[in-house]
Design a protein around this nucleic acid. Structure first.
Length: 289
DNA sequence: CACTTGACCTGTCCGC
DNA sequence: TGCGGACAGGTCAAGT
């Protein structure tokens, strides 16, 4: 579910809420949620304090003062929700969630020494948490293979184009979704940026012109920045660290808008399958060439 | 090797 | 209302 803008929104919320807090209890399904961690994972977490919350691609990294980190992937339906202690009283940002969590999709509960909680919920159980030494993070297979951050200040259109040309024979949509090409793009922002750049999702990468890449580079970054500004996209499950929904779907131009008019030309938006995913285009603006 | 497909799970929606 | 099937925003292993 969550793509780069959603994970970044969660990260920013957690950075505000949990840095400095000390873990006092852990309730976790260690088999499901900590597949690679030591069996005594609770001992590694209890009494540790949160130092920082980072993000790389769609992965969250919670650094502890013990030189260990929690590495978390939310996959399709994962949520990380912070709930303050009741004694914080009315007006606390997420007071309304007190008593609602944990629920049946809660996989891990971290309790902090001030009686606040961090809940990892995941309906479909695709997500995971791993505990590992902070210094080992760069050695994790995914971290070694994942492509550059599309929003980083020093990322250029030339680098962007060169990354894609490694996958010249595949479709542009499949390449956008390939995390080893560019980090953080998922189905929503792939469709939205291809509409913005007026490129058909099945267009072979190798047939795109420098101008196509320039437009896609600009559109992808603009769409992701807008999505972060709107707190991400909530289609079904996604909520941020305060348990609140994102509003980007109110601004989506094609995603989940099949049957509605293209906001640019009025042609009816269609949906089909591309790169194995539900794909939305304006058949007038985005044509195979 | 490059690329595509199926599997991992649960919940929801749609048609009969 | 009940039931079966398709589908859902991600990633990896296995297959072609």
């Amino acid at each position: 579910m969550p793509e780069l803008p959603e994970v970044e929104t969660v990260r920013a919320g957690l950075q505000t809420f949990i840095v400095g807090k000390v873990v006092s209890a852990v309730d976790a399904d260690t088999v499901k949620s900590f597949p690679n961690a030591p069996s005594d994972v609770k001992q590694f977490l209890i009494n540790a304090s949160i130092v920082a919350v980072r993000r790389r691609a769609k992965v969250l990294l919670i650094d502890l003062d013990t030189n260990y980190s929690l590495m978390i992937h939310l996959k399709m339906t994962g949520q990380l929700v912070f709930v303050g202690a009741e004694r914080f009283g009315a007006g606390h940002p997420n007071d309304s969630l007190v008593g609602q969590l944990p629920d049946r999709s809660t996989r891990v509960t971290l309790t902090f020494s001030d009686d606040s909680h961090l809940y990892f919920n995941d309906q479909r159980k695709f997500g995971w948490m791993k505990l590992l030494p902070t210094i080992e993070i760069p050695n994790v297979d995914f971290m070694k293979k994942v492509g550059p951050e599309p929003l980083s200040a020093d990322f250029t259109v030339d680098q962007f184009t060169a990354r894609f040309m490694r996958r010249a024979k595949t479709s542009i949509k499949a390449a956008l979704l390939d995390q080893t090409v560019i980090a953080g793009v998922g189905n929503i922002y792939a469709d939205e940026s291809l509409w913005g750049a007026k490129i058909h999702p099945l267009q072979p990468v190798g047939s795109l012109t420098p101008d196509d890449f320039a437009r896609l580079f600009t559109e992808l970054r603009a769409v992701m920045n807008l999505a972060i500004e709107k707190g991400g996209s909530t289609d079904k499950n996604y909520i941020n660290a305060e348990g609140k929904r994102g509003s980007y779907m109110d601004f989506a131009r094609v995603f989940r808008r099949e049957g509605l008019p293209c906001p640019r030309c009025g042609t009816t938006i269609i949906k089909f399958k591309a790169a194995g995913r539900g794909t939305h285009i304006c058949p007038h603006c985005q044509q195979l060439v």
